[in-house]
Amino acid sequence: MRTALPALLLIALAACTKSEVPADPAEQARAAVAEAEAHYQASWEAGHAWRATKALIDDARAALELGDYETAASSADRATAMAEASLAQAEAESTAWRDRFPFSS
């Protein structure tokens, strides 16, 4: 079983960076992307990564390159929310799968 510990540490780190609330929009966008990436990594390590999360992170990175910080930040924030939902799925499924096989009705 994979452990999500290192990635959780990364998230904690990213959270610290975020709590400093950098005023510069470029910095803010970069922090948002870093946070999304850490969350995605955690979901991947839990075996529950979603393709849509990855796609949003790719969008966010592309926007960052173009200097479109607003788009970058909003895509990254949505990616973080998605990764959180996929981690919730991993958590719920760690026990729920047992009720599912073989489905008897």
């Binding site: 075996g47 529950h48 979603w50 393709r51 849509a52 998605m82 939902a85 996929s86 799925q89 719920a92 499924e93 729920a96 799968w97 047992r98 599912r100 096989f101 073989p102 489905f103």
Partner: peptide, 22 residues
């Protein structure tokens, strides 16, 4: 293997068994 087959995955929240059993 059994756990993988029975675990919901993805944004659409399906297990293998959702489609191929249920």
């Amino acid at each position: 293997g059994k756990r993988f087959y029975s675990t919901r995955r993805g944004q659409l929240n399906f297990a293998c068994s959702s489609c191929h059993v249920q």
